[in-house]
Design a protein around this nucleic acid. Structure first.
Lengths: 325, 325
DNA sequence: CCTCGGTTTGCACAGATGTGCAACTACCTT
DNA sequence: AAGGTAGTTGCACATCTGTGCAAACCGAGG
């Protein structure tokens, strides 16, 4: 981020030109050559202007699936769980990394339809959110904010970066105010959490969380050979895992755990978690969940049972597994 | 329009593939080459699939002007007349034909944001509407209809085609039911209109017009060297022109005339016109007006004064003329 | 006035996309 | 079964778009 000190043309000249070029290109179907003539510049500059327009979010492209093209099986899932499903096409041959990357990219674009000015979006962190954050499409919003849902991580492994970096990517993409949540992911002692939760600075964040318009999260899973980030990075010890097992936990949202029937209230670990109680989460008007890979299927079933999701973005193979219910 | 009798692959196979290709192309930024590999087909087929997806309205592209980039002068106009202005960039050097064509194309795309399922759109006819109709972007809608606002023309000159052809283009683009209005543009005798207006078949159409959600129209002008279609194609005789002059008419919407102050109630010619009274038109919740060329400026001023417009699509040069008010 | 660092520009090339055409396919007609 | 018709496919080519690079440009110091 460089301060706007040295700028060649007038500061907004570029935006104006980009806007005009984009208009001519996308609305009037002119070729870049023709646009170059109208703007008295070179074709390559026009190419760059239009790239800029796209990157700056001046152009919005969406692919819309006509209602009658949704398979009846999928329709049944949507009706049953009151959820809108966005299926991301990914070849079955793709590996987990590619899959996540592509689901993340699609999710980022779909998200732009849901987030706008004067809104607050709460986001979790983890490998899925990291992937999404890397592909965000900028969009100009005003008076909007991003709030962190659960305590921060501080590891940097295999492409997963600081929670704060994820947060700031979101903030930058939307021009939104970023509200960090400076607490640990898990507390050792529930009492510590209780005490800290009474602090005004913390209460302020909790308050913002309660009033958010959109929640965005991935799913963690303790099962499977590809567990979520939380389960592999030393947040939990042997005893914790035993506790989760004893509670029959199948997944988590923002470090809050739930069972396959969607219940979560009496999972002991949740007393130590920094994330929002799931019944509170379920009151957010739009709850967007991003899922990639079959390993998350049990977690997804549980999340659906808990009514945590209003909008599900999921890869093709995984959604197919879901159809057999 | 061919009945869906002979089709090579399964009827909807093509849509499915196009949708998938479009997803991969626009949402996941894959190259057509890569998409071809995933779909097990050739790159050129993918190119065609994506073209098809665009043409079929499966892809929606819009260029959005951030609020802070609207000039204060334009903002003043918008506030004053409670109107949203879409400025279409057209080089000053462009001739009237190009100008109209380009404004028409932009208008057609903007229109897609306003028209949707379960809506009724009323449309006028004339050179402007003809231009718009030629560039419509298809969009799948259900239970929507297009209703003709004023009596039909039957000439075919300089690119302007039968009103019915304009209508059916709209119907085809949106998959909407088309309601024709089989009456003359002007009646010789107001009494004939009175009588005809009592017919049930006509009343039905008038009724639909009253309940429309969107009205789309251009502006006619009797002044200037480039008058609207109505004024040049033999609809009006010498006496009519004198009458319009005597009434100080500056323009018309769907063959209903108004003065520069927006008044129209006591213009004698309107008793003979088949179009909807302007005070009725002004009650439609969205009223989209397409204007191209400075010759329409007086007509535009009048239409604004009459509060006929909620959304104005106009070329750059013309809107500049307006700023001097 | 000159130099320096950073940015923008246009060119030339590389890469991606669009399209005429001929071969092919499925299905209908005779 | 042969022939016809309309639609689809992949190839080869044409066109359009993206980008590395060197030159030009601009403003800030020196």
């Amino acid at each position: 981020m460089r301060a706007p000190v040295t700028e060649h043309p007038a500061p907004s000249e570029r935006v104006r030109d980009a806007l005009r070029a984009a208009h001519l290109y996308y609305m009037q179907d002119l070729t870049m050559e023709a646009i170059a003539a109208e703007l008295h510049t070179s074709r390559s500059s026009v190419s760059r202007l239009i790239s800029y327009a796209r990157e700056a979010g001046l152009v919005e492209i969406q692919v819309k699936t006509p209602a009658e093209r949704i398979s009846t099986a999928l329709q049944r899932i949507q009706d049953k769980h009151h959820v809108t499903v966005h299926v991301v096409p990914v070849p079955d041959s793709a590996n987990e990394v590619d899959r996540l990357e592509r689901v993340g990219m699609s999710a980022a674009r779909i998200l732009n339809q849901y987030f706008d000015s004067n809104m607050t979006m709460g986001i979790a962190w983890g490998s899925t959110m990291s992937a999404v954050s890397r592909h965000l499409q900028p969009k100009v919003t005003h008076n909007s904010q991003i709030v962190q849902l659960n305590g921060a991580a501080n590891t940097r492994t295999t492409g997963i970066v600081y929670a704060s970096e994820i947060m700031s990517r979101f903030g930058a993409a939307y021009g939104a105010y970023v509200q960090q949540f400076p607490v640990p992911a898990f507390f050792d002692d529930p009492a510590t959490k209780q005490v800290l939760w009474r602090e005004r600075s913390i209460r302020r964040v909790l308050d913002i969380q309660k009033r958010m318009d959109v929640a965005l999260f991935g799913l963690g899973t303790p099962l499977s050979d590809v567990p979520g980030h939380v389960y592999t990075s030393g947040y939990l010890d042997e005893q914790d895992f035993q506790s989760l097992n004893a509670s029959h936990v199948v997944g988590d949202v923002a470090t809050v755990f739930y069972r396959s029937d969607g219940s979560s209230a009496d999972v002991p670990m949740n007393l130590r978690s920094s994330g929002p109680p799931l019944d509170q989460l379920a009151r957010v008007s739009r709850r967007v969940c991003v899922v990639s890979g079959k390993s998350r299927m049990p977690a997804l079933r549980g999340a659906l049972a808990a009514h945590l999701i209003t909008d599900l973005i999921v890869d093709e193979a995984t959604v197919h597994g879901l159809l057999d219910d």
